[in-house]
Computed example of a mutant assay.
Amino acid sequence: MNEKAAGGAPVREAALARRSAPKVTDVSPDDAELRSLIAAAGRVADHASLEPWRLVALRGDARARLGDALVEAAGLEGPDAEKLRGKPLRAPLLVAVVARTQEGHPKVPVWEQDAMAAGVAHLLSLLLDEAGWGVMWRTGPHVRHDAVAAVHGLAPGEHLLGWLYVGGVPADASRDRHRPVDASRFLTTLD
């Protein structure tokens, strides 16, 4: 292991320790802490320095408006609608991940721009987890619906990739980690 790799051990440890938190408490990082973590997450690899992403924080009533938009997108009524309406209320903070893509860019295809936005989201989830917050990346069948886009104020060329649900880690939450990844299953070598 080279000197630089030895110094990178905290990043490896944070990656190995990361775990999705499906249930969180009603506390969340304030805007200052969130901005600090976003500044670090924004260092993700960015071909042509396009910065093809942005994040939208949803707190309080904004989460309820998202629930209403999800119900509209699903066309539901009754108990099923109420269940769906309540999903954004599972965490005190939702961070919407928005890809801001440029069609026809000469060097960076749209899929790569989406990958950059997803990279920011993943790095932010890792940083939030390392800072002691519970985080779960959620999507769903209505993530690209017009009503859902309207709640987030999406502009032309922007589309939603999902939300990071963020909150406190319950005292009784298990922090057991998933089984180790068998890297040999995912790595091949071309000679």
Rank of each mutant, 00 (worst) to 15 (best):
R175W: 07
R19K: 02
G119K: 09
L123Q: 13
A5V: 13
A69T: 06
D31K: 15
G134H: 01
G42Y: 10
V95H: 01
V108W: 07
A62T: 06
G42I: 02
G162K: 03
A21G: 08
E103Q: 12
V27T: 15
E33S: 15
V181F: 06
P52C: 09
R185S: 03
A183G: 07
G134L: 00
V95Y: 01
V181E: 05
V120H: 01
A173G: 09
G162L: 05
R144W: 11
R90T: 06
V110G: 07
V120T: 08
D114L: 15
K4M: 12
G60E: 15
G119S: 10
S20F: 08
E130N: 15
S125D: 03
V169G: 02
W53M: 00
G168T: 01
L164K: 01
L70K: 06
V97F: 02
E72H: 07
G157T: 11
D191E: 14
S36Y: 04
R59I: 09
P92S: 15
R177F: 06
W137D: 01
L70A: 09
G153E: 00
H122M: 10
D46P: 07
W137A: 03
V95C: 08
A118G: 14
H145R: 15
S125Q: 05
T25G: 09
W163F: 12
R177C: 06
G86D: 12
R90K: 14
A150N: 12
D146T: 14
E3R: 14
A131I: 07
V110L: 11
A40P: 00
L16K: 11
A69Y: 13
G134Q: 10
S36A: 12
S28F: 04
W111D: 08
A115T: 07
R144T: 11
L89G: 15
R90E: 11
G75R: 09
R144L: 08
G153T: 00
P106V: 11
A147E: 12
T25C: 08
R12V: 12
G78M: 06
H122F: 13
G78R: 09
E51V: 07
A150M: 10
R63F: 03
A173K: 00
L89H: 13
A173F: 03
G167K: 02
F186N: 08
A48K: 05
R175E: 00
D191N: 13
D191P: 14
E103D: 15
D129F: 07
V97G: 03
P170C: 08
H47S: 04
A73S: 14
I38C: 04
R175Q: 05
R144C: 04
V11C: 09
A15Q: 06
T101H: 05
R59V: 04
G162A: 01
W163I: 01
P106K: 15
R43L: 03
L76F: 14
H159C: 00
H142I: 10
D61V: 13
G104L: 07
E51D: 15
A91Y: 04
S184E: 12
V71Y: 01
R144N: 15
L126T: 06
W111E: 11
V95F: 11
G162S: 03
D26G: 10
M136Q: 10
D46K: 09
P180W: 03
A5F: 05
M136K: 00
D68W: 11
V11A: 12
A21C: 05
